[in-house]
């Protein structure tokens, strides 16, 4: 086993990484530091915190690589470290405000659509203006943490349901449920925002047809 050069799915030498090879580790850092940084910004909403989490993530990764068992992808493992670090930071800041395992009452309920405005025909340029992009970020920050992390991993980072479950220690069913709730809440926020921008007062749902 010790003579073999085991490669990860993304082409890194696990053998070298686990032996503490700094050149291979630097290659790993270069491949993933941008995605890890962005993940942290989106979970924490703050560039300075994100930079701290980025550094902690790779310090821990280096330290614990010898324990990496290869059962998940290396990238999933890095996401897991980063997400845990970010959640611990949030917990330290607001010890009572968050539980990723047991969301507080109401945090996870279905958001029944209240805003029924068809804003989909807006020009994409306007939907993606710098002001709109800022609003997209704010809307994510308004989500309860337990929903936000799932949304960020699935819909922004593009992890599969299974991988997201591995990162967060959640069943696939729990991932799907939280993703659904996060998306419905964001849809509501964006409908309010883009509906206003369309210059139309959003029409409250009056019961359909």
């Amino acid at each position: 086993m010790s003579d073999e050069n085991i490669l990860t799915e993304d082409g890194f030498s696990l053998t070298a990484l686990q032996a503490g090879d700094k050149v291979e580790f630097a290659r790993l850092v270069d491949a993933y530091y941008q995605v890890i940084y962005r993940l942290a910004v989106k979970i924490l909403g703050n560039p300075q915190d994100a930079e701290d989490i980025l550094q902690e993530t790779f310090i821990k990764a280096f330290r614990y690589l010898p324990d990496f068992n290869g059962r998940s992808r290396l990238s999933t493992w890095l996401y897991r470290i980063a997400t845990n670090e970010a959640l611990m930071l949030i917990r330290r800041r607001k010890p009572d405000a968050i539980s990723i395992d047991e969301p507080r009452n109401g945090d996870e309920q279905d958001q029944e659509p209240l805003q029924i405005v068809d804003w989909c025909c807006m020009p994409e340029q306007e939907m993606l203006s710098s002001e709109s992009r800022e609003y997209l970020d704010q809307a994510i920050e308004s989500l309860p943490t337990s929903l936000r992390v799932v949304f960020v991993l699935r819909d922004i980072e593009g992890l599969s349901t299974l991988e997201t479950g591995e990162v967060l220690n959640l069943s696939e069913t729990a991932v799907k449920t939280r993703l659904s709730r996060a998306r419905l809440r964001l849809r509501e926020e964006l409908t309010r925002y883009y509906g206003d921008r369309m210059g139309r007062k959003p029409v409250a749902n009056e019961g359909g047809r």
Binding site: R38, W119, C120, M127, L128, D155, R187, T191
Partner: peptide, 24 residues
């Protein structure tokens, strides 16, 4: 029609976050 609007705007929501996923 209401549900069609909800579906379309739900899809658009996911799409907008997808296309801005490389921010910042």
């Amino acid at each position: 029609e209401n549900c069609r609007v909800v579906i379309d705007s739900l899809k658009k929501t996911v799409y907008l976050y997808h296309v801005t996923s490389e921010d910042p």
